[in-house]
Design a protein around this nucleic acid. Structure first.
Lengths: 351, 351
DNA sequence: GTCGTTTCTGTAATCGATTACATCTTATTT
DNA sequence: AAATAAGATGTAATCGATTACAGAAACGAC
């Protein structure tokens, strides 16, 4: 039908409401922002005018005057990664509850995209930033950091940057993963890494090594396969695994996707899970419960992580940080499911 | 270290740059927006001042003056749904390339959350809206629609709302799914629905029925299981399937997640896929390639869908719509993979 | 060198709210 | 009833850009 009247129609301004109610714009503003500063009678008068005119304050004008935008930038390495999607939900819950909006910055793992979002910050379009990508963009470092814009590192810590970090106990969980496998009798292990060099990967690997040491094993008792945090890394690890003469019986993958890739690949080569090899994942994504067998994994409190990160950022924006807020680490929970079991007895026929 | 100097530091304004360069603010503004309207010498002078002062224009002020925000609201039913996450990437690509930012509205399937986002629109915080949730919020209908804000329905059409729809050929693909199964010899089918009542579900089911008719089958030749677009729906469908005396040999699931749930459940009951039952999914999410066997499915051009939706919205914002833009349907591609095969011969021992 | 264009630049209004300050009411105290 | 305090409202400045309009400078032709 009516297809061509797309352009603003009337735009009620605060002055219109003021005129309609027979008061000044200041009073209208007060009725809407501080209703208790105004006489009840006036209040009703104004509200009626607001209703009649269908007025909603123009937030751009308000933002300009108040020097706030009530908007936060959330930078994620990849939106399709279920981990970040889930964290983002938590962030969204906390922020929208407090009246803030979210601008998403999706990097798709391309560093050059960071520049796009630095501008949002420099042009004061956001009141704060949640960084889930584990690094502060080069260009923005000076301007964002030193200009004093509230920034919080979420998921992946950014150490020594002078900003709060909200993360999970990566190292501890990795240590516990080894502990758990060792308890099941596994003494030859596999480690599927995440993106080499990232802070998260470094943490998880040191935790793994702590666990190896604690279990009385040595550096020769495990194999390490490298690759980014992807399904393909698990597939590649599995291929390497299959080529080994003496295969590990317990494998720890630093993310569920690679765990799933690993399991799928070894199974189609006839290796049984968990009878021949046990696999422990990391993340606790939804799909880890959809696989067959269901994946044993360390579940991150993803939603809570997002909420917490957002809460800290809000505190920072409001200047209400307390010392404990500068380094928060949430614990993970081991979900014992189908992909782990006791180590197979060595050399079934031998002895 | 230095933990307490979080509050704006210096804030360079356009007036500062003007003073530094010895010109008026108007000139500075022109240098930045229309460099060719200014003498090269002045241009350099100003640019040098910009550089020295580290100036970035305050976009709130600009937005107020230009009455645009260069920001778009994208409303998604659920962010953790891989389909929407993927579409969002496409939207993001197109929009950021054109200098627009994205505010995400995550509904988490809760209708009451729609209200949150209506305000963003009414307060003119966004220049347009992409609706992926298949409906226009009640409260916003009058204000958004009639106030003439550019809105585009993406993924799920919103018929008769007078807004452009950018969708995929749901109906055709569903018909083709039946066609494909019929060609493989399947004459007893199963249909796993999506959220009942949604436009998408209605479309896919009519397509399915068209296919049934085209294949010369009747309403008695298929079973329909209902539920939302989730993994659990597939599980429930599988349980119903297993209870049947005469089981379908070809199943069409209206989303990959329910297809995966179905397959996992029937397999653990000893039913072989695709030997005993073939399964066709819908969506082509990443995980459909990670299952065992890999899922045969109709792949939506998710990224392209997002880009297209964004492109139409931009056209609408710029008043450049052409008639063909009002109803765009992208085709799907059948990915023949591991979960489909010829129908098992009836009554192996009989005959 | 003068005049008429064309090209640059500056002045000041404008976008639509919020809010400090002043002013005018109303309430309280004596 | 007057004096004083408290409360409500209005006036006008302000946030920081963009841009219409006017005026100045540069350019070209004669």
């Amino acid at each position: 039908m009516s297809r061509r009247r797309w352009r603003a129609v009337k735009e009620t301004r605060i002055a219109d409401v003021a005129r309609l109610a027979g008061v000044s714009t200041a009073t209208v503003s007060r009725v809407l922002a501080n209703p208790d500063q105004v006489r009840p009678k006036t209040h009703d008068l104004v509200m009626e005018a607001v209703r009649r005119s269908g007025y909603t304050p123009n937030s751009t004008a308000r933002n300009l005057r108040t020097r706030r935008t009530m908007t936060v930038l959330v930078v994620a390495p990849r939106l399709t990664n279920p981990v970040f999607a889930q964290v983002l939900r938590g962030v969204d819950d906390e922020l929208t509850q407090n009246g803030y909006g979210i601008i998403v910055g999706n990097l798709d793992n391309l560093i050059e995209r960071e520049a796009r979002y630095v501008d949002l910050v420099l042009s004061r379009q956001v009141d704060g930033v949640l960084l889930m990508n584990g690094r502060i963009p080069e260009k923005g470092r000076r301007s964002m950091g030193e200009a004093g814009l509230p920034i919080v590192a979420l998921c992946s810590a950014i150490p020594d940057a002078g900003i709060p970090n909200v993360t999970v106990e990566d190292r501890e969980a990795s240590r516990r993963a080894v502990e758990y496998l060792a308890q099941l009798g596994h003494s030859k292990l596999g480690y599927i890494s995440g993106t080499p060099g990232t802070f998260i990967e470094v943490e998880r690997f040191s935790g793994f090594q702590e666990g190896v040491a604690a279990a009385g094993l040595s550096q020769e008792d495990f194999v390490r396969w490298e690759g980014p945090f992807t399904f393909a890394t698990g597939v590649a690890a599995a291929e390497a695994f299959l080529r080994l003469k003496k295969r590990p019986t317990g494998v720890f993958a630093t993310c569920d996707e690679s765990a799933i890739g690993f399991i799928k690949t070894v199974r189609s080569a006839g290796v049984r899970v968990p009878d021949d090899v046990s696999v422990v994942g990391f993340d606790g994504i939804e799909f880890a419960d959809y696989t067959e067998p269901t994946l044993t994994t360390f579940q991150q409190p993803l939603h809570e992580l997002g909420r917490t990160g957002a809460r800290i950022l809000l505190k920072m924006i409001q200047g209400k940080m307390s010392p404990a807020d500068w380094d928060i680490r949430l614990p993970l929970q081991l979900l014992e499911r189908g992909t782990t079991g006791p180590a197979p007895r060595r050399g079934r026929s031998a002895k």
